[in-house]
Amino acid sequence: MTSTSPDAILAETVTITGHGGDQIEAYLARPLAPGSRGGIVWIHHMPGYDRETKEFVRRLAVAGYHAVCPNLYSREAPGADPDDASATVRAAGGVPDDRLVGDVAGAADYLRGLEGANGKIGVIGHCSGGRQAFLAACSLDLDAAVDCYGAFVVEDHVEGMPKVMQPILDLAPNLSGPLLGLFGKEDRYPNPDAVAKLDAELTRLGKQHEFHSYDGAGHSFFSPDRPAYRVDAALDGWHQIYDFFGKHLAG
Rank of each mutant, 00 (worst) to 15 (best):
M1W: 03
T2Y: 06
T4I: 09
S5R: 15
S5Q: 13
A8Y: 10
I9H: 07
T15S: 03
T15F: 01
T15Q: 00
H19N: 08
G20Y: 02
A29H: 07
P31S: 15
P34N: 14
V41W: 00
W42C: 00
H45W: 08
Y49T: 03
T53D: 01
K54I: 08
E55A: 11
F56M: 04
R59T: 10
A61R: 13
A63F: 09
A63K: 10
G64N: 03
G64T: 09
A67P: 01
A67R: 05
P70V: 08
S74F: 00
P78T: 14
G79I: 13
G79Y: 14
G79N: 08
D83Q: 13
V89G: 01
R90F: 08
A91T: 06
A91V: 07
G93C: 01
G94K: 01
V95F: 01
V95C: 02
V95N: 05
R99P: 03
R99G: 02
R99W: 00
V101Q: 03
G102Q: 05
V104L: 06
L111A: 08
R112W: 06
L114D: 14
A117V: 06
A117N: 03
N118W: 08
G119D: 01
K120I: 15
G125E: 04
G125V: 04
H126W: 12
C127A: 12
S128R: 00
S128T: 11
G129Q: 08
A133T: 06
L135M: 14
C138Y: 00
L142D: 01
D143C: 11
A145E: 09
A145F: 07
D147R: 00
D156P: 07
H157D: 12
H157M: 11
E159D: 15
P162S: 09
K163A: 15
M165D: 06
I168A: 11
D170A: 06
S176D: 02
G181A: 07
L182F: 12
G184T: 13
R188K: 12
Y189L: 12
A196T: 14
L198I: 08
E201N: 07
E201I: 05
L202Q: 14
T203K: 04
L205F: 02
L205K: 05
K207F: 00
S213I: 14
D215H: 07
A217Y: 03
A217T: 11
G218M: 13
S220C: 12
F221C: 14
P224W: 07
P224H: 04
D225N: 08
D225S: 09
P227K: 07
Y229W: 12
V231G: 03
A233L: 11
D236M: 12
G237Y: 10
I241M: 07
I241T: 02
G246E: 07
K247H: 06
K247V: 14
K247F: 05
L249R: 03
G251L: 04
